[in-house]
């Protein structure tokens, strides 16, 4: 009950921030539109909507990190969190209260991306449902990363690290903009050591109904999600103790 009250508050704070909505939802949709327009005017299949959309949904999740990190860092800086520490809310209430609201927001963003892509020519099939559900582990990774960054960085730092660095990392290493096989080398090795390309590949595989291929990519995503969640919880508890 207490946790749900806190989670409700976090949802309102995120959804009432026009910058959050503008970037989190607007930017991926603008990219879909823009890259589809480019595809319509080039002779090669670089940004086909059926491969582009799953990748864009993965890229869109990086904004969940920005949302959660900004909210937590702001709460720390305005002393709201300190004040809440004097109430009967427990550590798990805080952690779940920050993380839970972002999961439906992340899935909602994914659904909107797929719906937006339909008039642009996306193939409609039941696989879209599997692709949306398949986003959950990567969403947990991004939300946990936000909890971690919000626990250790200031609002200003979060803006730079999560807003600029992470969104770029997610974009470059997910293989959304270009085929990673073409680049190869160290860049390719780094990309495959990170979860972004695995999430994009899994999304594409689920969207195309190739479930065996999707299964091959889920393990690194799960491992990263578990690892970052554990580190994030540790970092949050540490800053809670420091307060």
């Amino acid at each position: 009950m207490r946790m749900m009250t806190f989670a409700k508050r976090c949802t309102k704070e995120i959804l009432r921030d026009p910058i959050n909505l503008g970037f989190g939802l607007g930017f991926p949709l603008v990219l879909l539109l823009l890259l589809s327009a480019i595809q319509a005017n080039i002779p090669v299949n670089l940004f086909e909507i059926d491969t582009l959309t799953p990748g864009i949904t993965v890229f869109g999740l990086s904004f969940m990190t920005l949302f959660s990190a900004t909210l937590i860092a702001k709460d720390r800086e305005t002393a709201l969190l300190q004040r809440l520490y004097t109430t009967p809310l427990t550590a798990s209430d805080f952690i779940m209260g920050y993380m839970l609201p972002l999961l439906p927001i992340a899935l909602g963003q994914t659904v909107i991306c797929y719906l937006f892509a339909v008039p642009l020519g996306l193939t409609v099939s039941v696989n879209i449902i599997y692709a949306v559900i398949g986003m959950i582990p990567m969403a947990v990774f991004n939300i946990s990363l936000g909890l971690l960054c919000g626990s250790i960085f200031s609002v200003k730092q979060v803006g730079g690290i999560c807003g600029a660095l992470l969104t770029n990392l997610s974009a470059w290493f997910s293989g959304v903009w270009f085929d990673l096989e073409l680049v190869g080398g160290l860049f390719g090795k780094i990309a495959y050591a990170l979860p972004f390309v695995h999430a994009a590949e899994m999304e594409k595989a689920l969207f195309n109904g190739r479930f065996e291929l999707a299964g091959a990519h889920i393990l690194p995503i799960l491992l990263y999600s578990l690892l970052i969640s554990a580190v994030a919880v540790f970092a949050f508890l540490r800053q809670m103790k420091k307060q």
Partner: peptide, 23 residues
């Protein structure tokens, strides 16, 4: 606290409701 520790995007009523819910 020294700083005005409130939830800025929530209304006055919602801020009060938040603390009622927490308690």
């Amino acid at each position: 606290p020294q700083e005005t520790a409130v939830a800025p995007n929530l209304t006055v009523k919602e801020n009060l409701e938040l603390f009622c819910g927490i308690h």
